[in-house]
């Protein structure tokens, strides 16, 4: 029992697997971006080298910062994403699911953003405080449409268990498709990709909340980002696109995951960075009504018994 738990947490579908796929996904992001931009792009293992390099470097704790939160904050992100990844993957291929695990995953997915905010606030640097402030604003912006669209999917699928979504592509209906679009935009912001990378904006804030971080602690943030590259698109695939199962289903699931990832990369490379206030307006006045519409359609479709609405 303990052995299988350790295996679950540290090997598959836990730390090792999530990291390995995250590194692969990060390479895909960089390679596809490079191809769009007429560049060559990095070799396959470059993201792994980057992480390994950071873990060989020195940790510098800034003077005047809040030492404990500075040290603990980077751990929150990977921890949350690790749990989310285990719940998501196991529910998909084993069907082990419990009531309300969608809600649990939603809560766990807030942790990376919180860890960035906490870490940025703890450094005592004005630029990183500004970045944390922007991250907080961005979170307030995208959480609402994300929750609305996920709720629409829950209504559509008819259950609070992740296992109910498997094999049931919610996006194959009007409300599901609208919800998927809204959720995809939220995921873009949650990943901190352009056009929603205001918190880190290197040409404005030079990395924002992460500006004072170095060595293994910065490496933890990078790991958190790598894992998010697997977990967030996978969450979308599970909730909206029918997830994946074992055998050929796993391959089909992987294809869906890569398609979502490529969609995210395309949005990333064909837009400039939005300002914080513009991002807020975009999510509240653009994405949130879309999510609300999806929810209303899903409820109406459920009431009148038409599955395609």
């Amino acid at each position: 029992m303990v052995g299988s738990l350790v295996f679950d947490f540290f090997v598959f579908p836990g730390l090792l697997f999530t990291l390995a796929v995250g590194i692969l996904a990060s390479w895909v992001v960089r390679k596809v971006s490079a191809l769009i931009q007429w560049r060559v792009g990095p070799p396959l293992l470059q993201p792994a080298y980057d992480i390994a390099k950071l873990f060989g470097k020195e940790n510098i704790i800034p003077e005047g910062g809040a030492e404990w939160s500075y040290l603990i904050a980077p751990l929150l992100g990977p921890a949350g994403l690790l749990l989310a990844s285990i719940i998501l993957i196991k529910s998909n291929y084993l069907g082990t699911s419990f009531i309300g695990d969608v809600i649990v995953v939603l809560y766990l997915l807030v942790l990376p953003a919180l860890s960035v905010i906490l870490g940025g606030m703890a450094t005592g640097n004005s630029l990183s405080a500004m970045g944390s402030n922007r991250e907080l604003r961005l979170m307030i912006a995208y959480e609402l449409p994300l929750l609305l669209s996920i709720t629409a999917a829950i209504v559509k699928a008819g259950g609070l268990k992740l296992a109910t979504f498997t094999g049931q592509p919610v996006a194959a209906s009007i409300s599901g498709a609208l919800g998927f679009i809204a959720a995809l935009l939220c995921i873009q912001a949650e990943l901190g990709f352009i056009p929603f990378d205001t918190p880190e904006a290197e040409t404005e804030l030079m990395g924002g909340p992460l500006i004072e971080y170095s060595g293994p602690l910065l490496g933890l943030y990078k790991i958190s980002h790598l894992m998010a590259l697997l977990v967030l698109p996978l969450f979308l695939v599970t909730v909206f696109l029918g997830g994946f199962s074992t055998g050929w289903g796993a391959l089909w699931g992987a294809i869906k995951y890569v398609l979502v990832l490529v969609g995210i990369i395309l949005i990333k490379n064909t837009n400039p960075r939005l300002r914080s206030d513009q991002a807020l307006k975009f999510f509240w006045y653009g994405a949130a009504p879309l999510g609300l519409l999806a929810l209303i359609l899903a409820v109406v479709g459920d009431l009148i018994g038409m599955g395609w609405v």
């Binding site: 971006s33 769009i36 931009q37 007429w38 560049r39 352009i194 056009p195 990378d197 904006a201 040409t203 490379n269 064909t270 837009n271 400039p272 960075r273």
Partner: peptide, 16 residues
């Protein structure tokens, strides 16, 4: 200018 507002694709294309 594209790079400064985070539009790296314009950056790379214009320089090409």
């Amino acid at each position: 200018a594209g790079h400064f507002i985070g539009y790296d694709t314009v950056f790379m294309w214009a320089w090409k």
